[in-house]
Amino acid sequence: MRNLLRQIWNTKGLARWILLTGTIITVVFVVFALFAPWIAPFDFNQTRDASGVKFEKLGSPGAGHLLGTNDQFFDIFSRVIWGARTALEVVLLSVILSVAIGVPLGLVSGFLGGWVDRVLVFVMDAIYTVPYLLLAIIFAFMLNDKLGSGIVAAALSLVAIYIPQYFRVVRNTTVSAREATYVEAARAIGAKPTTIMRKYLFGNVVQSVPVIGTLNAADAVGTLAALGFLGLGIQPNEASEWGYDLSRALDDAQAGVWWPALWPGLAIILLITALTLVGEGLNETLNPALRRRRLRKVQFTDRVRTSDTEEVAPR
């Protein structure tokens, strides 16, 4: 951990700015999420003010309601703030779970090899070919029936689409690390397979996980919103969710009413951009391949640019 912080501290130039900007915006959203009850003037499902008077339907932005109200009488500013809490809860849960499942699976599969490895690789590749949104839709559809339409169901639907990514990366690094001399040495002194995996391989193969994690987090924000937009996400009485609010804003947009749609969308874009920036910044900071090249001044911009563009490209 200290090593990580030192590396971040040592960054220079573009990578530093990318990391800094991304982190600041992300922190703002985290503050929104943590202190939503104090920042938001109303509850996310509140339709009447303290004296029991119902809010105006589709009230325009202005006094009383900073960003206006939507067609369900909700205060849009409050929904946007509370939405940050929902988004971060879902994203955190889904990223942690997919790391917790994908990394050990990749490690074991890569270390053991043989038919276990082949079967797992094949299944993961098959999952990988399905459009990620479609996969999330199937999971959300199934989980909504079993678990209701809350944060847990939404997070679990996202977990399925990210596991293969961790699996692939960790497995491939493990396969190449398995033959390294230090692993052979460990085997020679009689280390058990579990010890080799835990003590020798784990630390070497998790290097890329923070980067994938943040990029997945960015992706998860968008996918969560997409699920909500399709009516498969979190219902409005459970929590405030930006994608759901956007689906409600569809008809208003046809009528030319702009405020219910604008703000939740901007929030999504900002959070996705911020998380992507953090991921890119981390990539340039932590990736040993990129780091080494930084020493060679001439090659620096070329290499970094090229690989960063490849990293962002969605599949």
């Binding site: 997409a226 937009f229 956007l246 939740p264 969308g265 992507t276």
Partner: peptide, 24 residues
């Protein structure tokens, strides 16, 4: 490139809604 990043970050349905508003 900025345009490319934006198309990645902006949810397609939000872009659609904004275009509808603009056209309307």
């Amino acid at each position: 490139r900025l345009f490319g990043v934006l198309t990645y970050a902006a949810p397609i349905f939000w872009v659609g809604i904004m275009l509808v508003l603009l056209v309307v």
